[in-house]
Design a protein around this nucleic acid. Sequence first.
RNA 1: GGACGCUUAGCUCAGCUGGUAGAGCAUCCGCUUGACGUGCGGAUGGUCAGCGGUUCGAUUCCGUUAGCGUCCACCA
Length: 880
Amino acid sequence: MPAQLPKTYDPKGVEPRIYQMWIDGNYFHAKVDWTKRSFSIVIPPPNVTGQLHLGHAFDNTIQDILVRVKRMQGYSAVWVPGTDHAGIATQIKVEENLRKEGKTRHDLGREAFVELVWEWKRLHGGRIIEQLKTLGSSCDWERERFTMDEGCSRAVREVFVRLYEKGLIYKGSRIINWCPHCATAISDTEVEYRAQHGHLWNIRYKVSGSDEVLVVATTRPETMLGDTAVAVHPEDERYRHLVGKTCVLPLVGRVIPIVADSYVDPSFGTGCVKITPCHDPNDFEVAARHGLEHVLVMDGAARINENGGQYKGLTREEAREAVLRDLEAGGFLAGVEDHDHNVGVCYRCDTLVEPIISSQWFVKMEPLAGPAIDVVRDGRMKFVPERFTKTYLNWMEHVRDWCISRQLWWGHRIPAFYCDDCGHVTVAREDPTACEACHSAHIRQDEDVLDTWFSSALWPFSVFGWPNETPELKYFYPTTVVTPGYEIIFFWVARMIFSGLEHMGDVPFHTAYIHGIVRDDQGRKMSKSLGNGIDPVEIIDAYGADALRFTMVTGNAPGSDMRFYHERCEAMRNFGNKLWNAARFVLMNLHVDTWELPEELAMEDKWILSKFNRLVPDVTENIENYEVGVAAQKLYDFLWDDVCDWYIELVKPRLQGGDAARRSSAEQVLVAVLTGALKLLHPFMPFITEEIWQALPHEGPALMVAEWPHPDERLNFPVEEADMERVMAVIGAVRARRAEMRVPPAKKARILVVTTYRAAFEEGRASLMKLAGCSEVEIRETPPEDVKGLVALVTDSAQIYLPLAELVRVADERARLEKERRTAETERAKLSAKLANQGFVDKAPAAVVEAERARLDKLDSLLRKLSDSLAALPPEDEPS
RNA sequence: GGACGCUUAGCUCAGCUGGUAGAGCAUCCGCUUGACGUGCGGAUGGUCAGCGGUUCGAUUCCGUUAGCGUCCACCA
């Protein structure tokens, strides 16, 4: 920083330069170094063609704080960045773009289309990475990965083959969630449920060879086209005689059996359930138990297929209307009721999900879930905040097999090859040229790709080179911590855990530090459709990255959502500016270019050093416990209140005075405290702290690689700290009283301090003069004889008299002092009752009792002084 | 149906293992105070949702009620 500094901090002018300096210094790169402890984080890989949103800003800030602290603490700390190929999201994006040219992916064909997506990735893939840099993220860019790069793809293939060989991956025909819009299967996790007002239609099914009629209830009448049975509860007396008989499916005319199954709840609806095995998971189960026929009536676009007869070609919505109309016309409709229920929609596109039978690949979860439950139960892996443990366990304990195949082109293609001749499936690490069973060359690779989350599940070890046994893997795995939002606990965290355990034999990370989501100022989720999204890039532009980062970590509890307010960013920018100006002040007054702590320390020096010395372990501990918000708040308070509002003001007289030694020691302490605080603050506000540090006398190339502060025994000054605070209390009392009495600041007064802490106040004399607006300070141990015309103030260690004759009315003074006395007495009464309570004295920790005793002493002292002051008051003024 | 979270100053929210209630913003009163008006000094404002319990002591722990919110499950 040159001598002439702007009065306001300009992030735009500083941030890119500082970031480049870090890059040039290669400070982000972490090496395998067995002489150091390792610390590692892998980034939750953002979508490669996505752009930065506040959620990214949130967890990247957290990660950066953690990794910067550890780096400064001397760890070999790596933060591995990278991006996710984001199968569906990316493919859709490219397809949409293609549609502008009036083309679909099928016009191009698989190979050309995939090449086009790669091209798109090359074009847009860098954006989010660049945006992460503007945040100040200290990722090890040399280790940047992509879920579809060669290494990650190899890991995916290896995992697939291993799991297949162990029988943990299988292909089967099951009811899966089908998204008609994305035209692919999706996993259970990818379905979101929405409450919806709907209807329950009652439909008459005529019993064969009888006049009896069964009434079934359904919310989805169009699926009746695929009914292959009607089920009743085995114990249900009403229908027992019909079990084993058949009935006739209306409109279709198919004769279907009536079966008994305990799945049916006799108390719901009519107690008769239509069974549609191909379009309902429960019905699928029932069908399996009873060996029922499967009739699939919908295609991949959720249109009725040829099995739907006359309804063929209709969409599911059209089919519903048509079916209802025809049922009505045929007299099959027995009634309709309102019915609220949940419907599943695709988390990507919001389209109503269609449960449909389909042949897909699955990961068998049960054997994988067991260990994943154990490691959390026995504490080998923990969630912060702890409550997410339960969320996780509940999910893992009930998890169903994971549908991993996607009918997409963009992704890791399933390495399964079907033999046209013998039907054998060859699953192999390298593409086979022939069927492994019959050696026929007529093999075809499975058309599908894997769920995007299949590859991100491997991220904590694939990024370090697995399946190769690399030094990185040995050194950095398990990673220390991951920092996802709670919305991806199931998508990502859970799957990393069982994958890590299965393939690495160890947890992928020791801690999952879960955060909430960033909402708008009305508490709404940010979304494209609401148009309420806030672009972090604009925020950085307006307030600076440091301000955004600080906003992200302060004022919200771990794991809970936060609302985003511009005002908060503004406040944090102001904090940066405050720090900037404090630094400017220090530099303006600095006459040295190196520093060390002076031998002779003044009271205020010891006070601030002592406070700082306590701040160091406090902040360190908070960060270690993942209480970054608390740590940030402490730094904010220390810098603004203690350093700026007090210490700097306290040393101004020395800096401007003629005593060179006292001036110089103030400079030294200023630099010491500022430097120390900059180190602690650096992980939170890396840019501004680095910029200031570079301008201050320093050793080493950069703050970001400076050593994290340690508390220093020699800097504990409890006595001087207390003395200083006694003086500060008097300053506060005088200021408050003056403000109350509207004494203009320019009007200085002579004050009289009556105290037994004479030495402390002698040393604080200059501070009192400067900060309490005094023309003169008299310190004595006994009160003056005549206090007429004096305003009396009391702290627990001093009585103060201000000669403000023209402003004083004795009656008012008396009233005020008495009010203070009453307050103090009330408090004293409470306190002495507490101390008189034998239970308290016996059972409370000694330190607490001691503290309360000390407080009582102070109150007594205060009360004595109040009484003295009251007694000394002259008789009431003559009414004039 | 199950689980979880929240309810603290006008607003938005912090408050670690129980031991004198905090911040930012807003409001009010002052201030060109030689770092900073993105500032300085001062002030107002809270029976910490209600009710029980444990405890010497509860905003903090337990139970319960109410309101709000989230996740999971999904009886057609």
